[in-house]
Nucleic acid binder design. Structure first.
Lengths: 218, 218
DNA sequence: TGTCGTTGTTAGGTGTTCCTAACAAACTGG
DNA sequence: CCAGTTTGTTAGGAACACCTAACAACGACA
């Protein structure tokens, strides 16, 4: 069962998309990985042949098999642990660690992963708020709410930032948005317009597109 | 100037062999990397075309250009820093960290390397005794002596272990051999026979083949 | 109903890195 | 000097992961 970096990237992408709205499809995976749909189509075929993925003929959904999920979870855990390591131990800025973790996640051995988790105190989430899975989740497919769907008067807590690009993360930070932060929605402009909210008595305003990339919980 | 993992491996191999006895040749590089000479021949051509290596027509020696040396040193530094990190911070055994460092060395960014060096206190050597270069060495090609060449009555200090396989490192440790250890050669059997030496008043005996993999200084 | 846009597949091709096999060139020992 | 080993090269091919281009299948909507 040879597991190259590329194959791991695909499993990770499916894992992340599977639980989101719309699930994992060829086009979505292609967008996530920055490759052409044709390449994804081909690779998915190979991963299905290896028994790591299955095609849900209904709606063209791609899903993980048990074996695939086990491998995907391991990669995701290493990715998020690596991000924690980069911010907490090395002191690197949170908006830049994603890319580097994408490389580290393929380089860590079982033993290193275990020691790293212990040294970091088994952190529950990555710096962007995504949970670090310590075992294969049975079905954590609770689709999180997005800030974009909130209504005026509601109060929410930021769960995680769904876009990990440095540009977005910097923008989010400048708006007071970080995992765990409590906010109260003050105003939601119509026609997909900007949202106004308050964090620690400071007012912020962001566009709906950005708000769609902020996952929140009650 | 695209620098893939494979190209970095080749540069690293040339760097390590260049300063050893016999220098870097196609066959030696092939042995170091565990690939066929034909593959090396081909890759060297490409690296020469990229301006990272040059062929010394005399004796078929392969050498690094300034640009190649800069890149090679960076990879070597990351490799050895990674090994230190794995042993000192994660507490992994010294005989197993080499392989993992071979992957980490390609995954670290400039910023991560710098932070890592600082957090580890700018260690001078890797756990096996090889120096960690913090800048491009001008010409550190002092060929080290090997324990195999020592004579009875001489005393030497272990510089580094030239073979980083877990099997050899475990064997070396069981013979008291580690970087910095002082030993006195008691007996050298003829016909490439075993050597007897004393470390902290304990007698050890190893074969000449193993002794060739132990670099020593006065 | 027909047309358009989205989605996925297939075919064919590229670059990278490895392989084996065959060969050339150079050193080595009798 | 010649046979045999060592050393390096070339040719041809395979696997992997990507690409573009062309096409098929499907839903949405006038």
């Amino acid at each position: 069962m040879d597991s190259t970096e590329s194959r791991e990237e695909y499993l990770e992408a499916v894992f992340k998309l599977e639980c989101g709205p719309g699930g994992a499809t060829i086009t979505r995976i292609a967008r996530e990985l920055g490759v052409q749909p044709a390449s994804v189509s081909q690779m998915i075929t190979r991963l299905v042949d290896s028994g790591l993925l299955h095609r849900d003929s209904a709606r063209g959904q791609i899903g993980l098999t048990d074996e695939g999920r086990t491998q995907a979870v391991r990669v995701v855990r290493r990715h998020r642990l690596s991000e924690r390591f980069l911010t907490d131990y090395l002191g690197l800025p949170w908006d830049t660690v994603h890319e580097e973790a994408c490389r580290l996640e393929h380089a860590l051995s079982d033993a290193a992963e275990e020691s790293l988790a212990r040294r970091l105190g088994h952190p529950a989430t990555c710096p962007h708020g995504h949970p670090i899975p310590y075992e294969v989740p049975v079905a954590d497919c609770g689709v999180p709410s997005h800030l974009a769907d909130a209504r005026a008067g509601e109060s929410w807590s930021v769960a995680f930032l769904a876009d990990e690009s440095p540009e977005f993360l910097r923008y989010a930070a400048s708006c007071g948005l970080a995992p765990g932060v409590l906010l109260v929605v003050v105003d939601v402009a119509p026609f997909d317009g900007p949202m106004t909210f308050v964090i620690e008595s400071t007012r912020y305003q962001i566009g709906r597109e950005a708000a769609r990339r902020v996952a929140v919980t009650r």
